[in-house]
Structure formats: structure tokens, C-alpha cells
């Protein structure tokens, strides 16, 4: 394989088709940025959901000894073992309850540490500041009200939270955005593929003289197709690189600078740079492989042996 020969062929091909190549780069960049963006959106949602979200509907938080001072429900101090046993047996007796998990302060502490790993101030928290809780799975998630009315205000109960209800709207919005992004992505991907196929066709057509001679003198189909495939792959690589840039810029603009959601919404732990960087190799790989494969299959039709 003569690398210099192949490289000069690629250069000629790209220059001849400059406008088409540009179109390929832009559409690959946009579709990959959307793909990466919706991937990261999903990551963000699952990040926020935490451990219990997909398992339970309602959480009953019990008082611990430090709650007494600042929570009215807990003015009588920490929950007693008898109260806990009573709450548990009552929960299990309710027909709408499917399953009850008990979480000890120690377990809660470990999960908290995992979920907010790397965030400032996490070290200030100690296991004894955490509390006992019952995580309740319902047979019918809509009947969470029953639990709330039955247990809220009971001795030893700090609060009853329907976490799902709390976050559902936000997740609904995020999921909706992800679906819109996926729809646009599918559309963009189709456009990108058609553009690549067309570019390769034009490229093959404008060089049919060369490829015709190559066939006659016995160049292998690999040798004949290589410049075209590399051309598409190179355009894809540039597009993928741009998509990576867009993702990084997107995170910066949404979370740190620009909209600065990080400063406005303290409750949510946003994706870090590491999470974004993790998807970049994937974006680049798809950026290279997708056009290369599209070119390969197009050429099979246009450059027969």
C-alpha cells in the first residue's frame, strides 16, 4: 500500500467535492452533537433519580435525635424501637403496600456518599445525622395519599415524602426533551447518511476514469475503494470533532457559564466534565465509522470488480 498515493487521492477527492464535503461535516457534527446531548440528558436524569427512585413510591422518614430541635414533628426526640415496630407492622398490613424496605442511618450515609461523590461539604456529614426510613413500594403508585394520611404526624415520623411526585414533572420535561432530541437526531442522521451516499457517488463518478483504469490494470478493490472510504471517514472525523466541541461548549454554557444552572439550582447534582468527556470517544468513533460504512456500501454498488 502506497500511503502517499492514497493520501494524494484523498486530497484531490475532498477538494473536488468541497461543498458536499462541507455539508457532510456539518450534518455529521449536528447529528452527533444531538446524539451525544440526548445520551448525556439520559445520564443526567438517572443521576438525579438516585438509588430509590425506580424502586419505591413513598418514603417515610423517621426522627433521629438531632431532628428534635428543628422539626416540629420530632419534638419528642428520636424514634423509639417500639414506634418503629408499630409503623412497620401497620405498613405491612395495608393492602395497597407491595413491599417495605428499611434503610438504616448507616446505609443512608453510604448511599449519600456515593450519590454526591466529589461534591464540596460532603465530609461534614456524619452517619448519626442520617435517619431511619421506610421505603414503600405500592401496588398502585397513585394511591400514595393513603400512606401520607395514615402516617404523617405520627409519633416518631419526621415526614412522608412522595418523591416520585416531586420529581416527576422535571423528569417528564427532561425525558420529553430527550425524545425530541432523538427524533431530530434520527432525522439528521438520515440526512447525513443520504449526503454521504451522494457525496461518495459524485466522488466516484468524477473519478470513474481513474477507477476504470485501476480496474483494468488489476488494482484490488481495496485499493480502489480506500481513497473514497478514507475521504468519508476524514469528513466524519472532522464532523465528530466539531460535535465534541459542541458538547463541551454546551455543558459549559448550560451549567457553568451562560445559563449557569449550577449556581441557580443547587439541589441538583449536574453532570461533571468527566461525564461529558466519557462520551467523546464514542462520538468520534461513530463519526468515523458511520460515514466509512456508508461509503463502503455505496461503493459496492458503484465500483464493481
Amino acid at each position: 500500500m502506497r500511503a502517499q498515493f492514497v493520501l494524494s487521492e484523498i486530497g484531490v477527492g475532498l477538494r473536488r467535492n468541497l461543498t458536499m464535503t462541507f455539508a457532510v461535516i456539518v450534518s455529521v457534527a449536528l447529528s452527533l452533537a444531538l446524539a451525544g446531548g440526548s445520551w448525556l440528558g439520559r445520564e443526567q436524569v438517572s443521576h438525579m433519580k438516585g438509588y430509590w427512585y425506580d424502586k419505591v413510591e413513598v418514603s417515610i422518614f423517621l426522627c433521629n435525635k438531632t431532628d428534635g430541635t428543628d422539626t416540629a414533628n420530632c419534638s419528642k426526640g428520636a424514634v423509639t424501637p417500639q414506634q418503629m415496630a408499630q409503623i412497620h407492622s401497620d405498613l405491612v398490613k395495608l393492602p395497597i403496600v407491595e413491599k417495605v424496605y428499611e434503610e438504616t442511618p448507616q446505609q443512608a450515609y453510604v448511599r449519600y456518599q456515593q450519590q454526591f461523590k466529589g461534591q464540596a461539604g460532603i465530609d461534614l456529614l456524619t452517619p448519626d445525622q442520617m435517619q431511619y426510613s421506610y421505603r414503600v413500594k405500592l401496588k398502585d403508585p397513585n394511591q400514595y395519599q393513603v400512606i401520607t394520611s395514615a402516617f404523617e404526624g405520627r409519633p416518631g415520623v419526621q415526614s412522608v415524602q412522595d418523591q416520585r411526585q416531586l420529581l416527576e414533572n422535571l423528569f417528564g420535561l427532561l425525558n420529553g426533551m430527550t425524545y425530541v432530541a432523538l427524533a431530530v437526531l434520527a432525522f439528521m442522521l438520515t440526512v447525513a447518511m443520504l449526503l454521504i451516499v451522494n457525496t461518495v457517488r459524485v466522488s466516484a463518478f468524477s473519478r470513474r476514469r481513474e477507477t476504470g483504469i485501476m480496474r483494468l490494470v488489476g488494482a484490488s478493490s481495496f485499493y480502489i475503494q480506500m481513497p473514497f472510504i478514507m475521504e468519508a471517514a476524514l469528513a466524519g472525523l472532522i464532523g465528530g470533532g466539531l460535535a465534541c466541541g459542541m458538547l463541551l461548549a454546551g455543558r459549559y454554557f448550560l451549567i457553568e457559564g451562560g445559563l449557569a444552572l449550577q449556581d441557580k439550582i443547587k439541589l441538583i447534582q449536574f453532570l461533571g466534565w468527566g461525564d461529558v468527556v466519557k462520551v467523546l470517544p464514542l462520538v468520534l468513533a461513530v463519526g468515523v465509522l458511520m460515514p466509512a460504512l456508508a461509503a463502503f456500501f455505496t461503493l459496492r454498488k458503484y465500483l464493481k470488480v
Binding site: R215, L216, V217, G218, A219, S220, S221, V305
Partner: peptide, 12 residues
């Protein structure tokens, strides 16, 4: 086979 055709054409 198709992939052997180029080898043959090198001798023609």
C-alpha cells in the same frame, strides 16, 4: 472468485 480477478488482470 471476485477478489482474485485483480490478480488475473495484472497479467493482462
Amino acid at each position: 472468485s471476485n477478489w482474485k480477478v485483480p490478480q488475473m488482470r495484472r497479467q493482462v
